[in-house]
């Protein structure tokens, strides 16, 4: 039983990290109809800039804030310079964002050096609790907590505020939202910034979890995030949470019981969803 709990906690923590990346991606796709392959680059930049600030200040909290600010700034720049000229053209979006993803990865090597960088949890989050036979690693619980908190806050914003209402309406019908007097481009920008900040937050949280960060990590996680968006339903925020947890758990259990299938399991899950429910598990197109 303790093994089951440990694997479940591990899977949940991984799922929450993927969720942070995928939630922004699903909103950006749902609202803006933009396929942003550079999203993983923002995740990696969040990790590197956050760890750098963490090393510099000795405070993990300031490191997290540093990552979020990096995400916001890169989000504005990406939307303005890269995405804006290719709105409405998926082929151009794929090409330019994939290209920008490579630029972001290479720029990480230029700024932080080509070697992987080690990262450790802050002192308060090191170690574990023992609950009977079950060992609960503090940092993993922390990631699950932050993921749940981000979900709750974002869900509240989407469901209970006017901005959230506009975002949900925009996911369904952008043209109509504009016709009701709302500057959808400004909303696009806000969502893009928020999505980028969530990706960067995921990046800095991953650093102490995996113990090492490297420039190519963005692409690896971006693929996982796209799988999650497809499984959860494009544009569905809740869908991305469930799908991310599903992917995280499947990966954790498969890695233990059938290691040879641990990488393929995500693709198999996505293929099954595409065959039996192509609109995703949560097909509602309301962004929440």
């Amino acid at each position: 039983m303790d093994l089951f709990f440990n694997l479940a906690i591990n899977g949940l923590a991984t799922g929450m990290l993927i969720f942070l990346l995928a939630s922004g991606l699903t909103l950006i796709f749902g609202l803006m109809d933009v396929l942003n392959f550079a999203h993983g680059g923002l995740f990696a930049w969040g990790a590197f800039s956050g760890v750098w600030v963490y090393d510099l200040t000795g405070s993990f909290t300031i490191g997290v804030l540093g990552a979020i600010v990096t995400g916001l700034l890169l989000g504005v720049l990406t939307e303005w310079l890269i995405i804006k000229p290719v709105y409405g053209n998926h082929v151009q979006q794929i090409l330019i964002t994939l290209g920008f993803m490579l630029v972001l990865s290479e720029m990480l090597k230029v700024v932080f050096g080509p070697n992987p960088i080690a990262a450790e949890p802050p002192a308060g989050l090191e170690g574990s609790f023992q609950l009977g036979d079950v060992i609960l690693i503090k940092y993993r619980l922390f990631i699950i907590l932050i993921g749940a908190l981000v979900y709750a806050i974002t869900f509240f914003i989407l469901k209970k505020t006017r901005v959230g209402l506009i975002v949900r309406a925009g996911v369904m019908d952008k043209e109509m939202v504009q016709s009701l007097g709302i500057n959808i481009r400004f909303v696009f920008m806000l969502v893009f910034m928020a999505g980028s900040a969530l990706a960067a937050l995921g990046g800095i949280l991953l650093a102490p979890y995996s113990g090492v960060i490297y420039a190519e990590m963005g692409m690896e996680f971006a693929i996982l995030a796209f799988i999650v968006v497809v499984i959860g339903g494009m544009g569905s925020f809740t869908g991305s949470l469930f799908a991310a947890i599903l992917v995280g758990l499947a990966q954790a259990f498969m890695a233990y019981y059938v290691p040879s299938l641990s990488l393929a399991v995500n693709m198999l899950l996505m293929a099954a969803v595409l065959i039996f429910r192509p609109q995703g598990l949560f097909s509602l197109k309301g962004g929440a």
């Binding site: 209402l165 369904m172 109509m176 504009q178 016709s179 009701l180 500057n183 197109k285």
Partner: peptide
């Protein structure tokens, strides 16, 4: 742009009605 036209005081009811299907009537 459309949002500024709407702000000038022009309301639009499109042919397909443009209802946000997952939002309630109140929303």
């Amino acid at each position: 742009p459309p949002y500024k036209v709407a702000k000038e005081g022009i309301g639009y009811v499109p042919e397909d009605q443009g209802i946000f299907g997952d939002l309630t009537v109140g929303e």
